[in-house]
């Protein structure tokens, strides 16, 4: 007899617990059937905005005169744990006949970057910044190596210095 009672009460309690759980799902089914929780990607590609801090890729911002702030000091390359940065510099001779180091190409291999942010944090001239681009898929691996400085770009000349 006892066993029978236990059997039925167990069954009954089980059904109640299931109904309770169904109550939660049912509530969502009826109260918010059109609420979309997920992002409608890629339909929203045009309007999608990432947060400012989002670590998409390392970029080198240029101003409207195609000038950047990089002095080719190599510090970012030394600090990168994965060797994904290679700074190529060239020596130029200015009008006064002095030799100066200038940035030729700033290579950045996003395929080897682990987005640690050390290059951006340690750059003494604040020449690097995070970009918000996140669609990085490519068909060949060598496309991952990007040159961060634009073609023909120059170092920003500080005001007061000729």
């Amino acid at each position: 007899m006892r066993g029978l009672i236990n059997y039925f009460s167990g069954m009954f309690n089980g059904i109640i617990s299931l109904v309770k759980g169904m109550g939660v799902t049912g509530k969502y089914f009826f109260t918010s059937p059109v609420t979309i929780v997920t992002q409608q990607y890629p339909e929203n590609r045009k309007t999608l905005e990432m947060f400012d801090a989002f670590k998409g890729e390392v970029t080198m911002p240029h101003n409207e005169n195609n000038e950047h702030k990089c002095t080719a000091c190599n510090i970012c390359q030394i600090n990168c744990p994965n060797g994904s940065i290679e700074v190529v510099s060239k020596d130029v001779v200015n009008e006064e006949g002095k030799k100066k180091k200038e940035l030729d190409k700033h290579h950045y291999n996003i395929g080897m970057c682990s987005f640690c942010g050390l290059c951006i944090k340690t750059c003494p001239s604040n020449a690097l910044a995070w970009g918000q681009e996140f669609e990085h898929a490519m068909f060949t691996r060598n496309k991952f190596v990007k040159t961060l400085n634009n073609e023909g770009s120059k170092l920003i000349q500080k005001k007061g210095v000729e």
Partner: peptide
């Protein structure tokens, strides 16, 4: 994850702390 992303820039893997403090300030 949105809170993390807004302040640290990463959703899953943040690398936010650094010896001596934080990489950047909170949003």
């Amino acid at each position: 994850l949105d809170i993390f992303e807004e302040s640290t820039g990463g959703r899953l893997i943040q690398s936010y702390y650094t010896p001596g403090g934080l990489m950047k300030d909170i949003h």
